Simulated assay, not measured.
Amino acid sequence: MQGGIVVEERLSGWVKQWVDGWVVSRGAAEPVGEAWGWSVAVGVSKEVARHVVPVPVEADVRRLAATAPPATWLKLFAPDEVVRPWVGDEWEMDVAGFLMTLPLGPSPAGPPPAGYSVTCWSRGGVIKALVRAGDGRLAARGQMGLAGRTAVADQIETAPDQRRRGLGALVMRTLQNAAWEAGARDGVLVGTPDGRALYEALGWTLRAPMASLARRAD
């Protein structure tokens, strides 16, 4: 039992790091602590708020699902098939996620491929990286929210016609190095199945699956 408690505490710690950096990245409100996790006011039409539950308990999830208003999201750190039966039909499953971590260190990204350029800047605690093709079009991008020693990677994307050219890795290395130079030492992210292979190749460690559900807006 003691081992299980330690594992849950470590998972909750990683999830809290992710929440703290994510709210900086997205400009959301400060997380509000709850017995089951954290509630965050997001304030956009498709996501008014989100409830983040690091160790989902069926009774808690059922209560949240029954009382949450439309355009609320649930982020539950458990497999989809475990938590889906706990919510009603008004909840839609989003793409599954994976919580991952990385000890940050100096890791210069190196030059971009021929014909591409990289711009990296920081504002308001958010580091952004933009890769552009020779004609100026967006090729890849991403950002990290800084929260103390933690940097949370967010909104990492590569244009469909620019994939398999190493641009996603270029964005991540650029962000990781900039975050380390800014004082961050712990990297945390929630990646999609499509991004998991990239992050693992860059040394990120998988910590837990995450189910993402949204209550349909009226």
Rank of each mutant, 00 (worst) to 15 (best):
D154Y: 09
D154N: 11
D154K: 05
D154P: 04
Q155F: 06
Q155K: 11
Q155M: 14
I156H: 00
I156F: 02
E157S: 08
T158I: 12
T158W: 12
T158L: 02
A159E: 15
A159F: 05
A159L: 05
A159R: 07
P160M: 04
P160I: 08
P160A: 05
P160R: 07
P160Y: 14
D161P: 00
D161F: 05
Q162G: 01
Q162N: 11
Q162P: 03
R163Y: 12
R163H: 09
R164C: 13
R164K: 12
R165Q: 15
R165H: 13
R165N: 03
G166I: 08
G166F: 06
G166V: 09
L167D: 04
L167F: 08
L167W: 13
L167V: 14
L167K: 13
L167G: 09
G168L: 10
G168D: 10
G168P: 00
G168H: 09
A169D: 01
L170Q: 10
L170M: 13
L170W: 09
V171T: 03
V171I: 10
V171D: 00
M172P: 01
M172T: 08
M172V: 10
M172D: 06
R173W: 04
R173K: 12
L175V: 02
Q176V: 14
Q176T: 11
Q176E: 08
N177M: 01
A178W: 01
A178C: 09
A178I: 04
A178Q: 06
A178E: 02
A178M: 05
A179E: 01
W180I: 08
W180E: 04
W180M: 02
W180K: 00
W180V: 09
W180L: 04
E181M: 06
A182E: 07
A182V: 02
A182L: 02
A182G: 04
G183H: 07
G183S: 12
G183A: 12
G183D: 07
G183F: 05
A184N: 01
A184K: 05
A184C: 14
R185E: 10
R185D: 01
R185Y: 07
D186A: 15
D186S: 14
G187E: 08
G187N: 12
V188S: 03
V188G: 01
L189C: 14
L189K: 08
L189S: 03
L189G: 07
L189R: 09
L189E: 06
V190W: 00
V190I: 15
V190T: 13
V190F: 04
G191K: 01
G191H: 03
T192V: 11
T192C: 01
T192H: 04
T192I: 13
P193L: 08
P193T: 11
P193Q: 08
D194V: 05
D194I: 02
D194A: 14
D194C: 02
D194H: 10
D194R: 06
G195A: 05
G195H: 03
G195R: 05
A197G: 07
A197L: 05
L198K: 04
L198A: 14
L198M: 11
